[in-house]
Design a protein around this nucleic acid. Structure first.
Length: 541
RNA sequence: GCGCCAGUAGCUCAACCGGAUAGAGCAUCAGCCUUCUAAGCUGAGGGUUAGUGGUUCGAGUCCACUCUGGCGUACCA
């Protein structure tokens, strides 16, 4: 609809030069009485032209040359130009959906381009928590949407198994191991206290008895912990239908010399210096906040150095779009990384950073202060156990990423029947059910007579089908998944109303088959929307 | 202190580049199943968009200040 109206305006602009000078909007009005699409150009021009907006609106309308796609164009309010599309035009979307099936909504807008989406990226120090869930869901869905607009997408998980956290984890496992052997140990305050640490230690006792007593914590203990925890993380992600194409180990950056190369490159440009035994980068000269330590006086790099080197590899791998998904707690790091990458000659415009706000978890009416180390958390697995993978994915997708969200675990548990995801899935199941019943009534969906679909409920569904491709593009561009959940809720609602008011079986054959086609097209659309969000579309409920 | 994100109905959240009468779900109340799935539909109530000032044809949206909450502000990641 928007594309069509835009073409009309572009044509009109050849006659009305002032249309070229104004950044007008083509929006869908909140109220149906205001049509399917609305343009505010006349109001925006009124001042510059020193004329009345409605007068300008009239001039614009006179200059537009619509064909029969448009039923009427009205001037309303302060000077809005409102479009009402014809049913014949709207019905095209239903035909599209039926013909293109799973491809409906997809486009080749970015065909031939590649994208890298990095998400989750939790170090293997413990099970994924509810907080990671938001990251996983957002990252995976964003990747889906990028694929839908033509990108070839790599999903990447970046991790570090060499830092202090992992060292402490190894020590924690060893301490539990010795405890299990009956020795008294000092379980230090900063150790990881989670049950999973004990479980790993117990496995080691079962398999090796006391043979590991003299092993260093950093050896077998850490290695086993990493392997077990990663297995656990992978299992959790699998349950959420989230998969990564590549796990990128920070260590590789050291092994293949990228860390040193990054240091050298900065040194060559005179952007690093030594102070108090540490190596600093001059971020203040690169547009960053202030200079930062990159290599500590101990000789150990800070996390920023590998972060820079890692991002350089993404550029070297030639991605057209580089998407980073992380929580608000990591927000301070990326401006420096981008500043360094830019200084080294790369186009940082390709990087899109999605910062999602924190998830506040409520349990038993209380806020749970999450800490992996202190073993104070609600795991993602527990949440999936309680609410189901579909509800978890839908729930995280429903909120704007920039919004803090409250996650009431007790509510999620009860939400079985009240969760909005079921409303949408139910529409899919209901349609599936009607379509199954068609055979017995000797009917089949047919797009031959879609012109018969003139009831308000039918028209409304058609309008929504028209909006789906736009909604997909919007999500791929702005990464705001809640626009898709909102769209799907509207679509499901429109269907349920249609279902209540417009009988399929029992109507005249031509009308029944046109309605069946509309239902089938709606089912395709619901299924595609849910699939992009990583949510299942059940045929029976 | 400084930086970022937010504050909208009882609760959880929407509102696309500033547009027309601020919308959903849940909860509450009142209706609708002899016919394709009632996990549905219809209707009702519920708002000083945290506050104050400003910008303009028009502000929940932009600007300034104030208040409240979250996150950050490391030679932690």
């Amino acid at each position: 609809m928007k594309a069509y109206a835009k073409r009309l305006f572009d044509e009109a602009a050849k006659k009305l030069d002032y249309l070229n000078d104004v950044d007008y909007a083509l929006e869908r009005p909140k109220q149906e009485a205001h049509g399917d699409l609305s343009c505010n150009a006349a109001m925006l021009l009124a001042r510059a032209l020193k004329r009345k907006p409605r007068e300008i609106a009239q001039e614009i309308v006179d200059a537009l040359e619509p064909d029969d796609a448009v039923e009427k164009i009205e001037i309303a309010g302060a000077g809005f130009v409102n479009f009402f599309f014809s049913n014949a035009f709207l019905a095209n979307a239903a035909k599209d959906a039926l013909e293109r099936g799973e491809k409906f909504g997809a486009s080749d807008l970015h065909k031939g381009k590649t994208a890298n989406v990095e998400f989750v990226s939790a170090n293997p120090t413990g099970p994924l928590t509810v907080g990671h869930g938001r990251n996983a869901v957002v990252g995976d869905a964003v990747a889906n949407f990028l694929e839908a607009v033509g990108y070839q997408v790599d999903r990447e998980y970046y991790f570090n198994n060499a830092g202090r956290q992992m060292r402490v984890l190894g020590e924690s496992v060893k301490a539990r191991y010795l405890e299990a052997l009956g020795e008294t140990t000092l379980f230090e305050d900063h150790f990881y206290r989670g049950e999973y640490v004990k479980e790993i230690a117990e496995k080691l006792v079962e398999e090796h008895g006391d043979n590991l007593k003299d092993e260093p914590a950093e050896g077998a203990f850490k290695a086993r912990a990493e392997a077990e925890i990663f297995k656990d993380i992978a299992g959790t992600l699998e349950r959420l239908n989230v998969r990564h194409d590549r796990f990128y180990n920070e260590r590789d950056l050291y092994d293949d010399g990228r860390i040193d190369a990054t240091l050298d490159a900065m040194k060559e440009r005179g952007l690093s210096y030594e102070k108090e035994g540490a190596l600093w980068f001059k971020f203040s000269e690169m547009g960053g906040e202030e200079d930062r330590v990159m290599v500590k006086s101990t000789g150990e790099p800070t996390y920023r150095l590998p972060d820079v080197a890692y991002h350089l590899t993404k550029f070297e791998r030639g991605y057209d779009a580089i998407v980073d998904v992380f929580g608000a707690d990591h927000k301070d790091a990326y401006p420096d990384v981008l500043a360094a990458v830019k200084t080294l000659g790369y186009d940082v415009e390709r990087v899109k950073v999605i910062v999602h706000q924190f998830v506040t978890v409520l349990k038993d009416g209380e806020v749970v202060k999450m800490s992996t180390r202190k073993a104070n958390y609600v795991t993602l697995d527990e949440l999936i156990d309680d609410a189901g993978a579909d509800a978890v994915r839908y729930f995280f997708s429903m909120r704007s990423v920039s919004s803090h969200m409250n996650f009431d675990v007790d509510l999620a548990r009860k939400q079985n029947e009240e969760n909005p995801v079921f409303y949408v899935q139910y529409a899919h199941a209901r349609i599936s059910s009607v379509l199954r019943a068609l055979d017995d009534a000797d009917l089949a969906p047919s797009a031959e007579r879609l012109d018969l679909l003139v009831a308000p409920e039918e028209r409304r569904l058609l309008v929504l089908l028209n909006r789906f491709p736009e909604a997909v593009r919007h999500c791929a561009e702005f990464f705001e998944l809640h626009h898709m959940t909102g769209y799907l809720a509207e679509l499901a609602s429109a269907f349920h109303k249609f279902y209540t008011e417009c009988r399929i079986i029992g109507s005249d054959k031509a009308l029944a088959e046109a309605r069946a086609a509309l239902a089938a097209a709606t089912r395709v659309t619901v299924a595609n929307g849910l699939r992009l969000l990583g949510v299942s579309a059940p045929e029976r409920m």
